[in-house]
Design a protein around this nucleic acid. Structure first.
Lengths: 165, 165
DNA sequence: CGCGATTATTTAGTACACAAGATAATTCGT
DNA sequence: ACGAATTATCTTGTGTACTAAATAATCGCG
């Protein structure tokens, strides 16, 4: 209101020379990632609801199906989440009968997480999620592969950048 | 535990023929996006903290600097958030003196949101965030541009896919 | 053996994010 | 005009997510 003269609804408010240039929302990579991630969650939700899984819980089950039992720390490393986030998440999953949590007898500092029989049974039904999603995906398989490759490299580098600033 | 014979620590548990193949976490595009978005937030946090902004609040300010006043609905459209998320977020920003919220006199159903003088003043300091981030970014400018372009197209298509299932 | 340092997990407190339902103001048909 | 349908926002309840601080068990070294 002070420096700019924007009419309601103008998409490009023509930043005057004397005005501080503001980075535009749609030019920010961070916002593209934020949006894509959010929309992806939205896309998964209706497929995961019938399985009784939320989206992060689904990721946790993927990790556990690949490698169980896992400690909370291992899961956190795999998912990029810290234990303060995982503990309540895993407790909810335990309440829902998907996983068991128990102290590692060999090292009582650790808690081992493992799918229950019911959690293992979900494995079969997850196939439908994957295939159902592939159909809903608005890109060609080749493009998806390329995007995935780019992102994976990006994530690896970001991990370094954020762990050692 | 039932069907697989996984030794603790094995990364690739050699899915036997009779076993249901589980999609691997690191092969999922959704997980790459989830990770990238989370890491990006982590990268921004130390830069935004001194400004008194959280990451979603920063996005909201970007939107408002581009176009104000905006209704809650317009902001939600721009950010891909619904009003149940935005209302408390905007209230916190109002409490912190960054924006004002008032009913539109022309249509009292709407709430108009607008940066305060203090909110406008942040504009100048945000430059540092952008440049500081560009340095921390572990990709070449060209690669970033390409990734951004791909993602933007992807997001546009996902928006269609999620709005009209 | 025993005590400090390390590692692992949990708790506390704040801030998103969404679905579903409640509330309030406007618009439209007649 | 006037009540029903529509639109916009807010409230409620659940589920992530992070930081910092608290708790608990093991390990290492004298």
């Amino acid at each position: 209101m002070t420096t700019t003269t924007e009419t309601r609804g103008s998409e490009v408010p023509a930043q005057d020379a004397g005005t501080i240039a503001v980075p535009r929302l749609d030019q920010q990579l961070c916002f593209a990632l934020y949006s894509a991630s959010g929309l992806m969650t939205k896309l998964y939700r209706p497929l995961l609801d019938p399985l009784g899984l939320t989206y992060p819980q689904y990721l946790a089950m993927l990790a556990l199906w690949q490698h169980a039992p896992s400690t909370v720390g291992e899961l956190g490393e795999a998912l990029g989440l810290d234990s303060a986030t995982l503990t309540p998440l895993l407790k909810r999953m335990e309440t829902n009968g998907l996983v068991t949590r128990r102290r590692d007898p060999a090292d009582e500092r650790r808690v081992l997480v493992e799918p229950t029989a019911q959690g293992q049974a979900l494995r079969a039904r997850v196939k439908d999620v994957t295939t159902g999603l592939a159909c809903a995906m608005p890109l060609k398989a080749e493009e998806l592969k390329s995007l995935h490759r780019t992102l994976t490299g990006f994530v690896a580098k970001l991990r370094d950048a954020t762990s050692t600033p």
